[in-house]
């Protein structure tokens, strides 16, 4: 399937309503369908629209013992509050994908790789403002190459509620955009 010891721990974070929980489910589902072992843990309960939301995903080609992510290899972050909370946790030499539409300052670390994407602006250009999450995920996929945007797009129908299936096409295009 893939090379040995392929393991990736990702935290997706943003405010409630930005679709970060959906991103985690989407990535986990696509990785499962590609034959990987996966775990997905959401922050749950006290989250409300406008509050912070996050989830963690582990993708591995070996069975996953602890599903808990304390230091992610990758952080995909959509807003300032989540950026402040999670950037210090990224592993040294890890990857940060940040939504520069809503995060103003660059990270205060020089030991990580940083990819900025104006996810909200690009989503607006695509006439689908709610697809900013998919823009950010597309940037990550292009960089890491663990799964192709096409592979991930194929899992959209499984995680997107049926009432939102009119957004399948535009979300696929957002994933393919790649920043």
């Amino acid at each position: 399937m893939t090379e040995k010891n392929c393991r990736e721990e990702i935290i997706f974070a943003g405010f409630g309503g930005q679709g970060v929980i959906l991103l985690g489910k989407l990535m986990a589902t696509a990785a499962m369908k590609a034959g990987y072992e996966v775990t997905y843990i959401p922050s749950y309960g006290a989250e409300v629209r406008g509050g912070t939301a996050n989830c963690s995903v582990i993708i591995d080609n070996e069975p996953i013992a602890s599903p808990l992510v304390t230091e992610p290899d990758t952080l995909i972050v959509m807003n300032q509050a989540s950026f402040d909370k999670f950037v210090p946790k990224i592993k040294p030499r890890g990857l940060l994908v940040m939504n520069t539409s809503l995060i103003e300052t660059p990270p205060d670390r020089d030991d990580i790789e940083v990819m900025g994407v104006a996810a909200d602006e690009i989503a607006h250009q695509l006439k689908s403002p709610r697809s900013a999450n998919m823009i950010a995920l597309g940037v990550y996929l292009k960089k890491r190459g663990l799964l192709t945007p096409q592979q991930v797009a194929e899992s959209l129908p499984y995680v997107l509620a049926k009432r939102h299936h009119d957004m399948l096409d535009v979300n696929t295009r957002a994933l393919m955009h790649g920043g």
């Binding site: 996966v38 775990t39 997905y40 843990i41 959401p42 749950y44 599903p67």
Partner: peptide
């Protein structure tokens, strides 16, 4: 526990 209830796995 709360993790086992909330987490997703294949």
């Amino acid at each position: 526990d709360g993790v086992l209830g909330q987490m997703m796995e294949p």
